[in-house]
Design a protein around this nucleic acid. Structure first.
Lengths: 164, 164
DNA sequence: TATTGTTATACTCTATAACTATA
DNA sequence: TATAGTTATAGAGTATAACAATA
């Protein structure tokens, strides 16, 4: 009940708001033409499965991305992780500390920049990430089971064309 | 500086963490094979442009989706909006009230269910949404400028295959 | 002067529990 | 008993300002 509009009928011309009509099947025609809408829905669908299947490794998508990049880029800095993944530095601090507390990564002084730390995966971290990447790839195979291999390659190529 | 690991070198076998190495070009090879990662990046890229270009209409992506669905589905209920867009009911309340306060939509009693409200766009709302949808479509054309029309159709089709 | 990493903090988004009115 | 809408609130995610150490 609106407390602002004392005369809501002013905004309800009969041609626009017929009270006798109700919607059986929602028409999503327009918003489904939008890349942004579809990309977001697809991403959320994948993330939902991802969260379940990577729960044993206690890695959310961001944790996984960061840890995976450290494994594949030994010596990478926080700053490089931030610009690569679009994370803001303050929001990466806790994540890095968590990975370190879990013994998955460690910090070493940067060879040429005293301000920075080189991030390195530990043996434990490498082993965990190997298993986690296998699980993540399985998730992909799962959510993409309605796509042929060619379609999947096409999808990745077209998505990169949007954001790169 | 870690306060938890008194002997961090235990986690830094030389073979795994060479302190003399630093990363010039970040290798994103693995995560870029993931649909979830690419879909999320693409969605965020579109949303960034969307926020700028629809700022004049004071509509965030969710506001836009909800308002657009109401325009195209006069009499739709909050519940139907929630299940269509994956929004939780408590989080839709404020949004609907905001659209109503702005005079873009109004509530009318549902014809057959006394608990529900039918949501209807006002003339103002319809006019605003017409302009906003034009802007949104322009955003799409913009972010998809590296895609042919055929590629764009393919992208939409493949994304739907992921989340539907 | 600019940048890396960090702290503190605010803001937004999303999720849960519980209530009312009606089905 | 179940559902639509709502309230209050908790939690997660994202953002800005400011600082120390180093370039």
């Amino acid at each position: 009940m609106s407390v602002l509009l004392k005369h809501p009928e002013r905004f309800m011309p009969k041609a626009l708001a017929n009270p006798t009509i109700c919607i059986d099947q929602v028409d999503t025609g327009y918003i489904e033409t939008l890349i942004g809408y579809n990309a977001r829905r697809a991403a959320l669908a994948v993330i939902e499965v991802f969260l379940q299947r990577l729960a044993p490794y206690k890695l959310r998508p961001v944790d996984f991305s960061v840890a995976s990049l450290i494994v594949h880029n030994p010596g990478i800095t926080s700053r490089q992780l931030c610009s690569t993944l679009g994370i803001l530095p303050p929001n990466l601090v806790g994540l890095i500390n968590m990975l370190q507390k879990r013994g998955l990564i460690c910090k070493r002084p940067h060879p040429s920049d005293g301000r920075a730390n080189g991030l390195h995966a530990t043996a434990t971290g490498i082993a965990l990430l190997r298993a986690a990447e296998t699980a993540a790839t399985a998730v992909e195979d799962d959510v993409a089971n309605n796509l042929t291999l060619a379609e999947r390659k096409t999808l990745l190529r077209l998505l990169k064309k949007v954001y790169l």
